[in-house]
Design a binder for these strands. Structure first.
Lengths: 208, 208, 208, 208
DNA sequence: CATGAATGAGTATTCATTCAT
DNA sequence: AATGAATGAATACTCATTCAT
């Protein structure tokens, strides 16, 4: 029993180690160029052990996207007492960008998109999380802001989409075409210009 | 003379055929997994002939990117006599989306992004064209519209960026996660909602 | 333990087999025309295994050169008790010729020379061993003979060079232009004529 | 007629040009690495024309070795009135080395040797010229010197061999392992040391 | 007679995956 | 359960040679 438990623990540690190494390699080299042997070496296991845990490269990749992948992010804590609309929107942007840059969602998206033709389901799942679910979560915050009178009533689904689109255009899009991209130094200024636009569109006293 | 002419014609036909096949394969399998031999076979030429026309896989791919990139940069014909602001903006959106969908820039971008870690220069070049240069071209049209009083004076560089970002978010982003994506049937309605937003921000009588 | 030992034994057998096959092919076809796949097949291993042992064609070839080069540098056992000067010189010649013919240094040199334009370092290395280092080793024996009064004092570096040159001219040079050359039947007689010349030049009672 | 003559002249000029270019390439890159297309371009003809003149790479190479190759050299003029033995021997050495270095016999030998396994006859022919015939020519001079009492009577065939061997060892051998080798700056001194040895062996007052 | 575009067989090397120990 | 040696199929690219014009 105890032995069994021990074994299972070791095994799950190995699994975790493999996932960690694999994520590192896939993000760094892309799906095709990442090598199973390299991943195994990096995780301090033999290739055979690697294959015991994940029966193919594709499965390993899928496991990363599903288990390890970036969370859509929790925007629920974005509203704090005493905040102005701008404060909240700024916080939303920051959470968003932190996921994209610090949690390497940019790099992961790149790799997943590359595999769209060969593993479409994986990409669809990712879009569900990083596209739709995230949008729902943002939308909820925006609805709350509308309820509080901080924004004028509007189609928050479409609004969240537009807001996300502007932010992506300015920050995410260029990062997708650059290895190891980081947030630019003038990020704050750009964020506020995006917020300006959002408030011009949907601020409490925006024209109809 | 006749010989030369004939040869050149044959040769340029072959070149076009190769480009067609190559595009097909790169979009279907991605850069790394597309095989030069397969491309050659598909184009009904030998690998050696393929290499006579394009001296490396990278160059062949670059040629395809260039082919798509050229029209991406030309919005000069978007203004026609008697147009309203909305007419022009609509036409800009349509040109944009046609390049992304009909000319398959979406799929191509996916492929290029996949190679960011291994061929960063290629990606940087593509972003230069499909990101920056295209924006410049859009900006020129917007400036013209401002001059004509169709839009209120504003930072057209940033405006073009925001507009492009909104359009991308709604149409391009989902398409990147889907193989063989097509424009949705309600494209027109969505386009007009994006234009609504743009005019609300930068229309002639938009608030400051 | 037992596993490790066993594996290592198998592995070293394979390595030896690969070297044998490779030598055969390189000597038969020359460096460029010898094929890694053919060598692997001949050694009954897959190309991948071949590359596990030798990470490139160049390295494989270098290993063969090294194998022949090592004995080429060792003349230390040439002096035995009770020997006359002629005995020792004869033994030196025999060792020299054995390396050239039995160990196929002649053929190997031919192959290396062919690659001088494309892999100059390889040739330089080989000359260092088969030219200079061998000469040093011969020189050491000659110095010892001088110390023992068997040869008159002289510039042993140049002497060894001349001696080697005479031997090469008579035996090696013709062999370089002939496939599968063997020592001629009257080798002994020719060796002694060369020794005659050497003793005439540097024997204990040679004129100054 | 005149036309015919003209054509034949053009044709033979082309042939010569091809041979010139081919020699250049073979010497520079070696047989295998020299490319027919490169040779044709260098000679300003099409590959098809090249093949009209020489039906295969091998034949082209053979033609070079046979037609263009380095002459064995004419040593007959080496004896001039008033010369000492040393003067004559020095002149012989210089002629020898000039053929090897200036006329590129070193490089040619390297290339031919490389092809010994595949075209043995070619190598045999070359050795006949550069080994035996040259030796005969040298021998004739030495015999004349003996007749004039400048050298003591001896087996001039073997003597010429030894002399050539010493010279080769010092100058030619190292050059074979080096691309674009040139005569060393201290060539004269080395030549005289070789002559010293020769005279010690076969000078008029050499010991028996 | 001359061209140069086209060929197809060939090269070294890599990598996901399996299997004897 | 774990190893790591072994595999074989695949890949980009080259080159001597031919043939339609």
């Amino acid at each position: 029993m105890a032995l069994d438990t021990h074994r299972r623990k070791i095994s799950s540690q190995k699994r975790a180690g493999i996932l960690r190494s694999a994520k590192k390699h896939f993000l760094k080299y892309g799906y095709t160029s990442a090598g199973m042997a390299d991943i195994a070496r990096d995780a301090d296991v033999s290739t055979a052990t690697l294959y015991k845990h994940f029966s193919s490269k594709e499965e390993l990749f899928a496991a990363i996207v599903r288990e390890v992948a970036v969370p859509a992010g929790d925007y629920s804590g974005a509203i704090e007492a005493g905040d102005t609309a701008r404060d909240i929107l700024y916080r939303l942007c920051r959470i968003y960008l932190s996921i994209q840059f610090d949690q390497q969602a940019n790099a992961l998206m790149r790799v997943v998109m590359a595999e769209v033709p060969s593993v479409p389901q994986l990409a669809a799942d990712m879009y569900e999380v990083l596209g739709n679910r995230r949008n729902d979560s943002l939308m909820a915050v925006i609805d709350e802001m509308i309820r509080r009178g901080m924004l004028k009533p509007h189609d928050s689904a479409f609004g969240a989409r537009l807001g996300g689109g502007m932010l992506k255009e300015v920050f995410v899009w260029p990062a997708l075409f650059e290895p190891e991209a980081e947030l630019p130094p003038d990020a704050d200024e750009k964020i506020h210009r995006v917020i300006d636009a959002y408030l011009a569109l949907y601020g409490p006293d925006a024209k109809d």
